[in-house]
Nucleic acid binder design. Structure first.
Lengths: 245, 245
DNA sequence: CGGGGACTTGATACTGTTCAATTTCCGTGG
DNA sequence: CCACGGAAATTGAACAGTATCAAGTCCCCG
């Protein structure tokens, strides 16, 4: 499998998130879950385009996405922006802010979304009493580090086609993990945002998608994507030079 | 300042690491430090080229670098490798392995080095009793996430010259934070490793260094670097198109 | 002192960017 | 409900930035 760019959803307790079903690792007890639920009871709705937090704002809480879709981005002084991730339900955002108590990136809703707020002070306190939670929190943070390593590998050593193939397969996998179709989904982000994430220009994203379509690897229609040939998409990764498709 | 690519050393208690001097945040008490010292007493020496751990090996401990220099790298199936970081004294490595209890990258000594081993189970246990340590550990992990975001920005949206300038300034800053010269230092890594880290080929690294030298921004002599004009190097960042120097 | 890896430099090829012109999509208001 | 307008997406052509290939030099280790 594509070691470099895999995503296990970074999940944590969140009462109103259907936690019991897919969010929680098996090793929490009933009682522990109850405690977590009191902590995670704060939920809020966001509209497409709303900021969950902004770079520079004070850190209070982590956020578990309940429904919807977010992007995180860092901004450069000169206006350049880099999308650092796309987050879907069950994933946690805000981890970057722990280091300085100030958010270092923006989190923006890509569609109407609901989140659970997890006040970090309370989370820390609770995790002192609950080793399972402590371990879980550490794993979530570590998983984010591993994810970032995968993106570095992607940005540092893959060509445009490989990057886009990796991206599509990664989305596919994450949708599948949530019970949605692995082969057919809607992109919530623009070509520009994909490009920013993958380190390429929106025109190149568009061209490469068209090329994949021409080669019958995928079917694109604006934001609708169907993966027609996942084996060949996978084969696109892990190949040093350009490969004739 | 170069927001995107700043590094505060990720430090943690380590008895034999001259901790009191520069490794420890002020908020640990004498007694707490003593407890940490018992934990961090394991130290080991490594020779240039030795692996501290390998991708796939079992996770037991975090490692605090006491002296020397390391690189971490992830390997792709097809043989491609991506250097994900260069670590210097006071920094912690191994955080990626917490997520799965398996190391996801290699750590290799770039020169003879000494490390302190921090058994993670004991670290977790101790941090349950010591909120200061818990908070510190969280900050270290979060800082790594922020660092990775900076590299994504670099890899995703900077040109070769900017990347190299950012890299040199970042090293400079980290040396300075350790009491070494900010303007004159020895590179411990090869052009190839720099290139892998920055997402460019070794020839491009070499050429760009020569170009910087020609423009009197730096003085290079193989692995010896002197930064002659830090303001102009800094100005190189944060400029969208190519700038005549 | 010899040898091999690391580094530099040049010429050329190629991937992806830039600029520009359309076309398509979608939300908004009539 | 349809028409409008602006943003998003597609596509083409020329160009720029790096990669690639190759030759030669330097440095360091044994």
């Amino acid at each position: 499998m594509q070691k470099a760019f895999t995503a296990t959803p970074t999940q944590i307790a969140c009462s109103s998130c259907n936690l019991r079903e897919f969010c929680l690792p098996a090793d929490f007890t009933e009682d522990e879950i109850r405690q977590l639920e009191t902590l995670a009871s704060l939920k809020r709705a966001y509209r497409r385009g709303d900021y969950l937090y902004r770079s520079g704002s004070r850190f209070e809480s982590l956020y578990a996405i309940r429904t919807g879709f977010f992007k995180t981005q860092v901004l450069h002084e000169d206006g350049r922006e880099q999308v650092t991730g796309f987050q879907m339900p069950g994933e946690i955002i805000g981890l970057d802010a722990i280091s300085t108590d100030i958010h270092t990136c923006d989190a923006v809703a890509l569609e109407d979304s609901e989140i659970c707020e997890l006040p970090f002070n309370r989370l820390e306190k609770l995790s002192r009493q609950m080793p399972t939670l402590q371990r879980h929190l550490h794993k979530i943070m570590s998983r984010e580090i591993v994810r970032d390593q995968g993106i570095m590998l992607l940005l540092g050593s893959m060509r445009a086609e490989e990057r886009l193939a990796a991206f599509l397969l990664n989305l596919s996998q994450r949708f599948a993990a949530r019970g949605y179709s692995a082969s057919s989904f809607r992109l919530r982000m623009t070509r520009q945002e994909i490009g920013s994430y993958l380190g390429m220009k929106l025109e190149t994203v568009s061209r490469t998608l068209s090329y994949f379509q021409e080669k019958r690897l995928i079917d694109v229609n604006n934001k609708s994507i169907e993966l027609l040939d996942m084996p060949r998409l996978l084969a696109l990764l892990g190949q040093q030079p350009a490969t004739p498709l």
